[in-house]
Design a protein around this nucleic acid. Structure first.
Lengths: 137, 137
DNA sequence: CGGAATCCCTGAGGATACTG
DNA sequence: CAGTATCCTCAGGGATTCCG
């Protein structure tokens, strides 16, 4: 509906003014979106979606992540307050990572994105094949 | 509400099963999300949100993009069917880029993400400062 | 188990110059 | 104006090794 369109435009426009035409470093929104575009953050957050997990459990869940990147990304997520870390002083040590309230709140934007991707990938695949068809030697 | 939570979980779980635990190349959803996480795609799409623009107009709107990356990203967006390209045979040539219906449809997921970022950046900033406080030498 | 530290390499992407 | 074609840099991230 029309009011919805207007709202969308407002959001987009505000983003542009703050993020692209303004000073880049000063735009918190663009800074955060850069984090979204991080290679691993989103995957890890999604893994933690249905409960706390331990380090190596996450590692196994995302086969193609290196230990270094997992450590590093978890630290960043912690620093940003999306993930909490709990250490149990057992032997050997057990460490649990869990989404905070903030971390949980980002699941909704993510799911909207995933739903779009899921609904659109066939259209995109079709566009690609007709594109390469057109550009066939 | 609860039914909403269940729906969210379902989306997230389906993504994980298809994308992370499965064969990576076979998962169209993860492939598409990789494109979202592209450094420039989202910015360009947002620039085109309120109407067609010409090449150098986009370039000026995103000051820190190189012409190489703009060309390349526009080509990818075209190939994926998000953006259409219209050439006017004038002298000098004029080329207009415009969102397709598919391209317009991704604005909504984007706006949800932006709204989240806009609503959360203060919380994140606070988390960061208390984090660095804790880890002060 | 859950990391930290180091070394190393690839490829995304910037700078520059040229063309229709 | 709207690109194409090279060259080159540098940081993201993999592989490996070591530690409490």
């Amino acid at each position: 509906m029309a009011t919805d369109e207007i709202r969308l435009q407002a959001v987009v426009t505000r983003f542009r003014e703050a993020g692209v035409n303004g000073a880049l470093g000063d735009c918190p929104v663009r800074g955060i979106l850069d984090k979204i575009s991080d290679k691993w953050s989103m995957l890890i957050v999604l893994e933690l979606a249905d409960g706390p997990l331990r380090f190596n459990r996450i590692r196994r869940a995302i086969p193609d992540i290196s230990q270094k990147m997992l450590t590093q990304t978890l630290k960043e997520l912690q620093r940003d307050g999306l993930v909490s870390r709990k250490v149990y002083p057992t032997v050997p040590p057990a460490v649990e990572y869990e989404l905070t309230a903030l971390g949980t709140s980002i699941l909704r934007p993510f799911s909207v994105l995933i739903e779009w991707a899921d609904a659109s990938w066939e259209t995109i695949a079709a566009a690609r094949s007709s594109y390469s068809e057109q550009n066939a030697a």
